[in-house]
Amino acid sequence: MNASAVIFYLISAFMLVTGILAVTTRKIFRSAIWLLFSLVGIAALYFWMQVEFIAAVQIVVYVGGIVVLIIFSIFLTQQSGVEMKKPNPKRNFFAALAVLFGLAFIYRLISEYGFMETPAQPFQASVSDIGTQMLSTGDQGYILPFEAVSMLLLGAMVGCIVIAMKNKTGDPGIAEPDAAKLMIHTDFSSKTTEKDN
């Protein structure tokens, strides 16, 4: 076992342990942090495989984006610091069953096909190649999915703005306090005029 394999096993063990902790801890914020470490482990694995671009994208998207989003939503929930109650034993039993089934399934797949050692050299994809491929209209180009995804994201963004925007007219939820304020104001002014009279 050479140094590279040792590093691989260390990273894998780290990922597995943090992954298990993420689903077993009963504090929701800690769960998010363990998930984060697990995702960082995946990025480390990419670095180990020397696909640095994918590793960096993994960190940007999952760690910097999604986990931060999850943490923000945890902050906005109530009782985020309270330990959740233990799941009932029946649920534990079925969860364990599902895990065992999954393990057996994967074991079966591996034992049937095994890991083949590829004779190919580790591929070298420079960043500019990735960029060219992404925007090429040729045979192997990804311009269509790229544009489709960008349209999807634009749609999501517009949707977010629409949801977040305050609807000034026709929304009873907003209009009512305004009307109440107006009424108080008129009431007040009429009183003063009475006093003046």
Partner: peptide, 22 residues
């Protein structure tokens, strides 16, 4: 991927701050 590495890793520091705050 030097520049991308920097912008990726620097986004991790927010995690430490969120962790400390919470």
């Amino acid at each position: 991927i030097g520049v991308l590495f920097i912008s990726a890793v620097s986004s991790l520091s927010v995690i430490g701050i969120l962790m400390a705050g919470w």
